[in-house]
């Protein structure tokens, strides 16, 4: 009997070891350990043994059974692993093949700048206001201290539709509208971004261009000052153009502000050393600004003795060109899809 057991054990072990796949291994299990298996048959034959032999042989058979089960389990795991590995090997792909493109569209660079500026100013409590592009002479000029015949109107030769209606030359028209709408009821903190139009078209001027303007009017007691304007524009420039920008305020002249300034930004290409972008000056003119002219306040319903504030404005197209290194303003309006598609990634924070 013992011999028989060890014979079964030996041949079972051999068959287990040589089984190449899970089916063969299962066949081995059935052959020896199944209901009709050889080892099971042995156990059944135990009734013919003597009472002394029975426990000895019984435990021997059980030991073998356990040993075989362990061995099968172990080999089973190995075979499973091998099988998975084989499958993985078969599923190997060329990860350098092109991807399935999942492509969003893109936002026009000028609108990217507008949204960035709007977010910045909204975070400082400014409202974003809008107004008509087909504007009246009254709001575009007269209410901004630019009476008919004023020489400063030269700077902005306009597209008139009638004697009264024109395409707005500046987003400041919205400032006048905002003031008239609020009429001293509240202080104002607003920005307006949008399209503006002037009668000029050459390499550096487009007859249609983008502008953004800001206006702060508050009670005199709150002392909105030139220093505040300077600080605000520093934030603007450092957010949009370059964290390390320096600003230079140059006294200038605009009819709607007094005092008025033009603001130069240290050249972000050469860092102020002088290059072709800044025409060797180290500075690039970017903004116009000033303290709101008392006539403008008065004409639009705010008492200059009680209120004061500042206004600023800048060209969006130039900001977009600076920010993204676009060499020619006309690219912004040509709308070549190969150009548009480039503006599809997140800006660097």
């Amino acid at each position: 009997m013992k011999e028989q057991i060890s014979k079964i054990k030996e041949s079972a072990i051999q068959e287990i070891e040589t089984a190449n796949d899970l089916t063969q291994l299962n066949d081995v299990r059935v052959k020896y350990l199944g209901k009709k298996g050889e080892l099971t048959a042995l156990l059944r034959g135990m009734k013919d043994l003597s009472a002394e032999e029975r426990p000895i042989i019984g435990s021997l058979v059980n030991d073998v059974k356990e040993e075989l089960e362990n061995l099968i389990q172990k080999n089973e795991e190995e075979l499973k692993k091998a099988e998975i590995n084989k499958k993985l090997e078969e599923e190997k792909i060329d990860i350098t093949l092109p991807s399935t493109k999942i492509r969003r569209g893109s936002k026009h660079p000028v609108n990217r700048i507008i949204e960035e500026l709007e977010d910045l100013f909204v975070s400082m409590g400014y409202d974003v206001c809008s107004g008509p592009e087909l504007e009246t002479d009254e709001y575009c000029f007269e209410r901004l201290n630019l009476p008919k015949g004023h020489p400063a109107r030269d700077m902005q030769d306009s597209f008139y539709i009638t004697d009264e209606y024109l395409l707005r030359t500046q987003t400041s028209a919205v400032q006048a509208r905002t003031m008239v709408a609020n009429k001293e009821k509240t202080p104002i903190r607003e920005i307006t971004a949008g399209k503006t139009y002037r009668r000029e078209d050459d390499a550096t001027h487009s007859h249609q261009f983008g502008q953004i303007e800001g206006l702060v009017i508050d009670y005199k007691e709150n002392h909105v000052s030139l220093a505040d304007l300077k600080g605000t524009l520093e934030v603007l420039v450092r957010t949009i153009i370059d964290k390390n920008s320096n600003l230079r305020f140059r006294p200038s002249y605009f009819p709607f502000t007094e005092p008025s300034y033009e603001v130069d930004v240290s050249c972000f290409k050469c860092g102020g050393k002088g290059c072709n972008l800044c025409k060797q000056t180290g500075w690039i003119e970017v903004l116009g600004c000033g303290m709101v002219h008392p006539n403008v306040l008065k004409m639009n319903g705010y008492d200059p003795e009680k209120f004061g504030g500042f206004a600023f404005g800048t060209g969006l197209d130039r900001l977009a060109m600076f920010k993204y290194g676009i060499p020619d303003m006309r690219y912004l309006y040509a709308n070549d899809v190969r150009f548009l598609k480039q503006f599809d990634r997140k800006d660097v924070d």
Partner: peptide, 20 residues
């Protein structure tokens, strides 16, 4: 000299900014 004026942010009442 404007260069001699130090920039700062206005001290105004806090409020929420609105946009479209």
């Amino acid at each position: 000299g404007v260069d001699n004026i130090q920039g700062k942010l206005p001290k105004l009442e806090m409020k929420q900014g609105n946009y479209d």
